[in-house]
Nucleic acid binder design. Structure first.
Lengths: 342, 342
DNA sequence: GTGAAAGCGCTAACAG
DNA sequence: CTGTTAGCGCTTTCAC
């Protein structure tokens, strides 16, 4: 037996009030008599009144729902970011709709349509790896739907965003490897149209330059940042006449692939080749040796992004200019890159 | 400049039709002239008409949104399940709202409220580890909102569910260890009020019994299935006068904890103690040795669960009796439990 | 095949 | 402080 839910008008009838009065009492409107308010609330509870948000949404033109598009939620980065997002959003009374683009541009376009259709009040996006333009977000902006990017964005686009200082992450990792005595440091890079991979690469380059070392083309391998790419990349490096003495990878997944190849070849880590990854995935402290990596303060990034979005949603009237928030990464030193005790 | 979205009545006016006719044309209603249908669709595209789902939802009393409650999305099980859920739901034209209970009963209660408030058309749940009753779902059932559980459910509750045959998973793992020659097999178990942990444990017991071995109390350690629990559990086992020669854990996280303790103690795996976990987490093939585990066919579970839910949502009229779907697990043999080649 | 009209449940003027 | 009224955009009888 489906329960008929009580509506505002039910309460109004019962109490001989106007629906508007009841609505105001329920919503904590100021100019309402204390007695009325109490009567309304009491009956509301008795009838187990649940507001119909759909109706309110239709009327107000806002759905109280936010949309999030991420490349995927495997791996702990996006999972943790989501945790931050959800916590803040729910506390603010917003629901969250999650879409995964599966690192696919076409899928991402559909996600955007889905969220527009669902009439979300704002959208949070971290771009898929295969996304190279902004066309699909034009409609979002035209509609005036607040939009915030986080972590992965495209260059040269003027939007609000929360990002990590990937450049610093790259720089510090490589500086650390240099401090350990490495002089021939290779790099696994990701698609360079994405800010994160480009900046990690630039950090790598700058650290080398600051140590008066050249960036050698043969030591830089670009790929898709999967484990398989690390395996191929490492094999490629091992075929060089002169081996590298360290690898800084823009992803933990590819560095763990490299790790396996090195083990097969009986190379000692970090003694023969030191390794450093990026993202502080769960498994980095479970491998042998444990992998040095960069923590991205995922939950904080999620919280910062959603806060920014909520601000925009709530102050929708005045179009504030895009804001950018940059978080600092944290280098985590582990066995794969540290053979002298500090 | 916020774009004014075109509505059905805009189209109707422009074409000198009634809104009802336009609505029917758009929704593929049969008794409508081909010409009218074409005119409507053409203009709709020109105006870039986007249906207002909120309005339709209010009118129809269904939101075209489904809710999912999971304990968390770290770790690959729920992440993959979500992938399956999303794929099927979106294809069927439904949006998905995700809530994480963070393994917390109180949080889970709030999640339920959130989803009821959002007026979802159906709810998919995997219970939190601390959930021991069903009270918070009573309202869902009273309202007649279709409800499907997956993976983690409570015993003795008659609801639709998609679960893994955890008993088989446990049985096969332990049988495999016995086949390898192990005779003193320990077990790390989880909270026994949850079907999954109980069944894995029961499978363990039965396999032992089938080999005429006793279930020894000192070899069974119950905990929370985190890495830390595995560490503590293993230490406890190592303090026994007679060591076990294998451990079957109901979770990969606790078995990886055990692995670390064993390494510290310089015990050889699997020669001194063999290990087998559960869930086929990503890291199980990255540790050294790689960990034997049980794959749960996560994505398929997600798909099966959402399909079942969609069925219930769509045939809402007749209240079909609860259905249960059981998926078979797959034992993945890896180094941590296999020293003789098969 | 098409139109007219009612109404989903709520909020926001505008009155008083 | 409270009531009246209109209407968000859509679907769905009920007519013709």
């Amino acid at each position: 037996m489906a329960l008929k839910r009580a509506s505002i008008s039910d309460i109004a009838k019962e109490l001989n009030l106007a629906v508007s009065t009841v609505s105001r009492a329920l919503n904590g409107y100021s100019r309402i008599s204390e007695t009325t308010r109490k009567r309304v609330w009491k009956l509301a509870e008795q009838l187990n009144y649940q507001p119909n948000h759909l109706a309110a949404a239709l009327r107000k033109g806002r759905s109280n729902t936010l949309g999030v598009i991420v490349p995927h939620i495997d791996g702990h980065f996006f999972a943790l970011v989501m945790k931050g997002i959800e916590a803040v959003a729910n506390k603010a009374g917003f629901n969250v709709m999650l879409c995964q683009s599966n690192e696919d541009y076409v899928h991402e376009q559909k996600n955007v349509e889905t969220l527009i259709n669902a009439q979300v009040d704002g959208i949070l996006v971290s771009l898929s790896r295969t996304t190279r333009d902004f066309k699909h977000f034009e409609k979002v902006r035209k509609r005036g739907i607040p939009l915030v990017f986080f972590d992965r964005i495209l260059d040269g686009i003027d939007v609000s965003a929360v990002v990590l200082d990937d450049y610093q992450g790259g720089y510090q990792s490589v500086k650390h490897l240099l401090d350990q005595g490495c002089r021939r440091i290779a790099h696994f890079g990701g698609p360079q149209h994405l800010n994160i991979y480009k900046n990690r690469y630039l950090g790598y380059c700058q650290a080398l330059r600051d140590h008066h070392l050249p960036v050698e083309e043969e030591l830089v391998v670009f790929g898709d940042m999967k484990m398989e790419d690390g395996i191929q990349g490492m094999k490629q490096l091992l075929s060089l006449p002169q081996l590298p003495d360290a690898v800084f990878s823009a992803s933990d997944f590819s560095i763990v692939g490299a790790l396996q190849v090195l083990k097969e070849h009986k190379l000692r880590i970090p003694y023969d080749i030191a390794l450093a990854g990026f993202s502080n995935e769960t498994f980095t402290s479970l491998t042998e040796p444990m992998l040095t990596s960069v923590d991205q303060h995922c939950e904080e990034m999620g919280r910062a992004a959603i806060r920014l979005l909520l601000e925009m949603v709530q102050e929708r009237t005045r179009q504030l200019s895009p804001r950018k928030i940059v978080l600092q990464p944290e280098l985590l030193l582990r066995e794969s890159s540290r053979w002298r005790q500090p």
